[in-house]
Design a protein around this nucleic acid. Structure first.
Length: 271
DNA sequence: CTTTAAACCTGCTGGC
DNA sequence: TGCCAGCAGGTTTAAA
């Protein structure tokens, strides 16, 4: 059940075993993708990257695999010869002579010509990705003062992939707590310094979650990689902590609902 | 224009 | 052990 940080780490794991490798086999559970199996066999993987919560895998024949895990999808990497515990819900298999990358349960999978990739509906509407190193503080501030977004509540914006890609429900709560802002505010009603603080949190919290392996269950089939800070764990400061004391002021964390999703906040620190 | 609600995808947990 | 309801960190669509 992934947000941007979890998806970006999944893309890391896939890239580590696929990039630069030749596919010995491609398999799809979806009938409409069957014709691509032959087309991909023998092709080289040029790269695997996350865009927001989608993953794109590029091949050397002008095609790209687009996949979105939604709530349930999960990529697993196995060594060649290693058997999956179950093939139930298996949707995609990409195999090299050394590894197998398996996608389970996801239903949103497409093969797209490279030149059409930017027209893919989900990718086309993505805003700047908090986990893209190229995304800057100024990019986020530009979103905050963009009239397309500045009149909407932060509660809605912080789930909107067009505002900042990669955000999700736990990040929303943690970003707002870190910035010390209540969810009902609109960007245009905030002071410049508060907007700057929010822009900071919108980059810092997802990136910290990514580096520290976020909420990922250890041993869930993902590779251990050295680029992550394993000495430190991401901690929820408000998400899922209703009734427990705020670590800053001791006030009980409150659970509510906003934009149809559960939201947690410290009513004293976030005003 | 924005917000809300429902629907859909699938899996897990807890209660009976 | 089995079944069902409820919930879930997502997204899209339609309605309000």
């Amino acid at each position: 059940m992934p947000e941007g940080p979890e998806i970006h780490r999944a893309a890391d794991s896939l890239s580590a075993v696929l990039t630069g490798r030749t596919l010995t086999r491609a398999w799809f559970a979806f009938p409409e993708l069957k014709p691509h199996e032959k087309r991909l066999r023998g092709r080289e993987v040029l790269g695997v990257e996350a865009r927001g919560k989608a993953i794109v895998t590029r091949f050397d024949n002008g095609w790209t695999l687009y996949s979105h895990n939604q709530l349930y999808g999960q990529w697993r990497v196995l060594c060649a010869g290693e058997e999956a515990k179950t093939t139930r819900s298996l949707r995609v298999a990409l195999e090299t002579d050394q590894h197998r990358a398996l996608l389970f349960s996801a239903s949103d999978v497409e093969l797209i010509r490279d030149e059409d990739l930017d027209q893919q509906p989900y990718l086309a509407r993505l805003g700047p990705d908090a986990l893209d190193p190229a995304t800057t503080h100024d990019d986020i501030r530009a979103q905050l003062i963009n009239p397309r977004f500045s009149g909407r509540s932060l509660a809605a914006l912080l789930l909107d992939q067009g505002f900042v890609a990669g955000m999700g429900n736990y990040l929303r709560a943690e970003v707002l707590f870190d910035a010390g802002i209540a969810a009902h505010h609109r960007p245009r009603d905030l002071d410049d310094d508060i907007r700057a603080r929010l822009a900071n949190a919108l980059l810092a919290i997802p990136r910290h979650s990514y580096r520290t392996r976020g909420v990922e269950r250890i041993g869930a089939g993902m590779r251990a990689d050295l680029q992550y800070d394993d000495g430190e764990r991401f901690r929820f400061r408000v998400f899922g902590r209703d009734g427990k004391p705020c670590e800053r002021c001791g006030t009980a964390i409150v659970r509510s609902e906003s934009a149809g999703r559960r939201l947690y906040c410290c009513p004293k620190c976030q005003q």
